[in-house]
Computed example of a mutant assay.
Amino acid sequence: MNEKSAVTRNAAKELVMFLFCSTVYRLFSGALMVSLTWTILNQDEGGYLPLALAIFCSFIPAFITPAMIKRLSLRMNGRQMSSWFVLGLAGLALISGVSRDFTLGLLITNLFAWLMIMSLEASLDMWFAQIQRGMDETRVRRISGATTATSQAALMTGPLLAAGLMPILNGMGFSLVLSAGFFMVAAICFTRHSQPSAVQTTVEVTAATRLPLTLFVPMVLIWPILGAFNFMLPVYVASHGWALFELGVLDAVFGLGMALIGVLVIIANTGRNLTAYLSGLIALALIATLMWLLMPDNLLLKALSLLILGMAFGGARVHIRVAIACRYSEAAVGLYVSRANALATPVLLLILSLQLAMIDNAWLLPFLLVTLSVALLLQTSATRFARGPSSTAAVGA
């Protein structure tokens, strides 16, 4: 009995450590990425090509991360990997301050920062898998909900942190603050004697039902939508003579919309009527588009439009995760997600090219892509697919 209590206490301590480290990391990473985006945008007055190049290159690490994680997992567990990756971000934060006046240096820093962030997302999932091993499904769902809520809150606060501190501190001062924050997280989550790595098991990929295009295409569009949004937002802010504060606010409310729809999904139990749920998401996307197009250039109105768009986009992401998790094994999900991420890079290149060609209306593409994604999910095949879980063992996200 005492041994069981000790195990429970250790698991609780590990969970608290995970929540703290993952939340604070996302707070400072959100501040770092928005500061890099803003600094790159202001390198060439009136020139948006460096920003487009930075956003496109930020998705290149998606091809490198899986092989790197697989190799490192032979020697380290998720918590140890997370510590080293956060330490890498601490160094990159310093480099961003040193190279703040050099476009090439900022582009390279941005590329490696995204490599660390994508690797961290994988290592944090490994760490979470260690913590929840042996717990009942209900408790795992509650823990997963808590991590999602705290992480989204941190990602929303990060841009505001940058907006508040960058005008006060000089370029290097802000970089030192970020580096110190990352170093603190790395030191806290580092351990030499943590839980052993999860036992690797072979899971057979079942092919009972092919993934419909109406679901796969929205999966491909997730990262391009985020990339198109990250490009159009600073372009819009700069073209209207606004500053970093407005950029931080608009970026934050988009994330707030994604967090809000997550709460509503849990409260309303929307799985009972997927057609109504997806139709509601399309309505939100259309309302957001019309508001952005027709309303005056007022910060409050634009923020409300992006809040609604964030709800539509976040709702689509929730539906995609549920649809694939309830139908395929973990190995099959990983296969489809990796294929979608690989195709996302050329799609993003096409979208950024279109945005550069129609720079005055660059905002339109992310709005239209969110609407298209939800419309595809509403197709009968995707809706029926999500309702009926197969005999394949479902994996909790």
Rank of each mutant, 00 (worst) to 15 (best):
10 N>C: 11
12 A>P: 07
13 K>H: 13
14 E>L: 12
14 E>V: 05
14 E>N: 14
14 E>W: 10
15 L>G: 10
16 V>C: 11
17 M>W: 07
18 F>D: 11
20 F>V: 15
20 F>D: 03
21 C>F: 02
24 V>L: 14
25 Y>N: 12
25 Y>E: 12
27 L>E: 14
27 L>C: 04
28 F>S: 02
28 F>C: 01
28 F>Q: 05
28 F>V: 08
28 F>A: 10
32 L>P: 02
32 L>M: 13
32 L>V: 01
33 M>W: 07
35 S>M: 09
35 S>Y: 03
36 L>M: 08
37 T>F: 07
38 W>S: 03
39 T>I: 10
40 I>L: 06
43 Q>E: 14
43 Q>R: 03
44 D>W: 06
44 D>K: 11
46 G>F: 04
47 G>C: 13
48 Y>S: 02
49 L>R: 02
49 L>I: 09
52 A>W: 09
53 L>M: 13
55 I>C: 08
56 F>I: 11
57 C>K: 02
59 F>T: 05
60 I>W: 08
61 P>M: 13
64 I>N: 04
66 P>L: 11
66 P>K: 10
67 A>G: 05
70 K>W: 03
70 K>H: 13
74 L>V: 03
75 R>I: 10
80 Q>M: 05
80 Q>E: 12
81 M>Q: 05
81 M>R: 04
81 M>D: 05
82 S>K: 01
83 S>M: 07
84 W>A: 04
84 W>P: 00
86 V>Y: 01
86 V>E: 04
87 L>Y: 06
89 L>S: 15
90 A>E: 02
90 A>C: 04
90 A>M: 01
91 G>P: 00
92 L>E: 12
94 L>M: 15
95 I>K: 02
95 I>T: 14
96 S>G: 06
96 S>Y: 06
97 G>T: 08
98 V>G: 08
99 S>R: 00
100 R>M: 12
100 R>H: 14
101 D>A: 00
101 D>S: 01
101 D>W: 00
101 D>E: 15
102 F>P: 04
103 T>P: 08
103 T>M: 13
104 L>D: 02
105 G>K: 00
